[in-house]
Write a protein that binds this DNA or RNA. Structure first.
Length: 491
RNA sequence: GUCCCGUUCGUCUAGUGGCCUAGGACGCCGCCCUCUCAAGGCGGAGAUCACGAGUUCGAAUCUCGUACGGGACGCCA
């Protein structure tokens, strides 16, 4: 049996990082088992579903490189034999209606004419009696005459599923193990709204069956929906898929990850300078681990090693520190041409004009601190002084230019570098060391002032390579200017 | 309130009855390397395995209870 799994988001907002993780686990499970990964848009909420949200889902999935084998495509076409993949369209085609009618005909479902007020009154009554809110079955046994009368009054109706009340509903969850619910705690859920649209619980069941899903991997906030869905499968005469309920991602306070914990929208992670591969690697490790706790995975390795049995049932707290470390690891492993491509939008956004520099030189400049970047957003400020006059840090001014020998050191190196014809790394270093030695200065006493003079900072890339990239004119100009910033030694 | 689920270093986790005086990773601290900052190397601190009973020669691992935390109880998905 070929594995078939799906990611089925509802387009009612941006693509949440928790949703991305669910999608990722489905994707990895499909790849690992040489199965099919499908995308389906659950837009049966007519009020909240938007095209913009659907677009955001496509955008996020594509950025994360979680490409689906079957499903709707951004250009409006469909890929796969079970199109359409939008539930709203499927509803319009009468796909769900067919099964609603079947249940109605078999007496497994019924029309319910209760008003919102009646429902609310019942809910309050249940709560007051310390019982779980559960539909009271007021419309469960109406005669055709009563129904006709209510309809004559202009009453709208929903369709409710007649939930079996005997015994237990149980299943073997791939992550939780054996899970059991008492049927009596289940209620007659609405499967079709007054609008004629199916509800979530009904539409998923129908589509997961029609699309031949073998496994349903989703967040554990769906655990309590599962028994009702299993009853629906049975009522329709279908075999239910294998379920796997993933733990949720929590914020540092132990609560479900939400806006107040910081970024939750995948697009924000892109804007913050994360690499999709890094985020993917990090997310995979949130709730899953190999038996040797491997941290970093080469391309394709996750797809190969992922095992749903290694998933943790307990919730995982998202740790930005670790994500940042991992992103740094990925940045270090990124070939320079690609890193430069990735950095370019951030450099432009920061307002740095690099149009006058060759691609080769730009790559060189970026490479100087490649091992330091944790986020792509850090790149602009770390390379800015190559393209603009340095902004002097107060600390640099005090600590380095405050030294009595700083001014002399700069004057000496201006002289030495002025005479240098080959303005390259090794010559620059030799000249600096020689100058220091000849004048009784320690190497550091001359290196540090140079660094501050050209960059405005006490730390940065390896000094002489940096000078080489800046070029003789710029370096001398900056050194001369810096002399005026130095304190004249007072005797 | 009812039901369901969860609980190993601060965080992500390894662990499926003896290899555990509990391993790895992030973060933290120290040392080395070094023109600075990083990166890298080496080392360190950090978990009475939520608690309490029980089963067993032996329990982080099995059973039961307690506590705490989370989730679900919609014509939302």
């Amino acid at each position: 049996m070929t594995v078939r799994v799906r990611f089925a988001p509802s387009p009612t907002g941006f693509l949440h990082i928790g949703g991305v993780r669910t999608a990722l686990f489905n994707y990895l499970f499909a790849k690992k088992n040489k199965g099919t990964f499908l995308l389906r848009i659950e837009d049966t909420d007519e009020e909240r579903s938007t095209q913009a949200s659907t677009d955001a889902i496509f955008e996020g999935m594509q950025w994360m490189n979680l490409l689906w084998d079957e499903g709707p495509m951004p250009d409006g076409t469909n890929k796969g034999p079970d199109a359409p993949y939008y539930q709203a369209i499927r509803a319009d085609q009468g796909i769900y209606k067919k099964y609603i009618d079947q249940l109605l005909a078999e007496g497994k479902a019924y029309k319910c004419y209760c008003t919102e007020e009646e429902l609310e009154a019942n809910r309050q009554k249940c709560l007051a009696e310390h019982r779980p809110p559960k539909y009271d079955g007021k419309c469960a046994h109406l005669t055709p005459e009563q129904q006709k009368e209510l309809e004559a009054q202009g009453r709208k109706y929903v369709i409710r599923f007649r939930m079996p009340q005997e015994g237990d509903v149980e299943w073997d969850d791939l992550i939780r193990g054996h899970v059991k619910f008492a049927s009596k705690d289940l209620y007659d859920l609405v499967i079709q709204k007054t609008s004629g649209y199916p509800t979530y619980n009904f539409a998923v069941v129908v589509d997961d069956h029609l699309m031949r899903m073998t496994h349903v991997i989703r967040g554990d906030d769906h655990i309590s929906n599962t028994p009702a869905q299993i009853q629906l499968y049975r009522a329709l005469g279908w075999k239910e898929p294998i379920f796997a309920h993933l733990s949720m991602i929590h914020g540092p306070d132990g609560k479900k990850l939400s806006k107040r914990h910081g970024a939750t929208n995948v697009v924000e992670f892109r804007n913050m300078g994360y690499l999709p591969e890094a985020l993917k690697n990090y997310l995979a490790l949130l709730g899953w681990a190999t038996s040797d706790s491997q941290q970093l995975f080469a391309p394709g390795e996750l797809e190969e090693k992922f095992d749903i049995a290694g998933c943790q049932p307990s919730p995982a707290v998202m740790d930005p520190e670790k994500l940042n470390w991992m992103n740094g690891e990925y940045i270090r492993a990124t070939p320079l041409p690609r890193l430069t491509d990735l950095a370019l939008p951030f450099i432009q956004k920061a307002g740095i004009n690099v149009s006058g520099v060759s691609r080769e030189k730009l790559e060189g400049i970026i490479s100087l601190e490649q091992e330091k970047y944790k986020l792509l957003t850090e790149i602009p400020d770390l390379i800015r002084f190559f393209f603009e006059d340095p902004v002097f840090e107060q600390e640099a001014l005090d600590k380095v230019f405050g030294k009595p020998e700083a001014k002399q050191a700069l004057e000496l190196i201006i002289d030495a570098y002025g005479k240098l014809t080959d303005f390259t790394e090794t010559h620059l270093e030799t000249a600096a060391r020689t100058t220091a030695k000849e004048n009784g200065l320690k190497a550091g006493q001359i290196f540090h002032p140079i660094r501050v003079a050209v960059s405005g900072r006490t730390h940065g890339p390896t000094l002489f390579k940096m000078l080489e990239y800046m070029g003789k004119d710029t370096v001398l100009e900056r050194l001369k200017k810096a002399v005026t910033y130095c304190k004249t030694p007072v005797c």
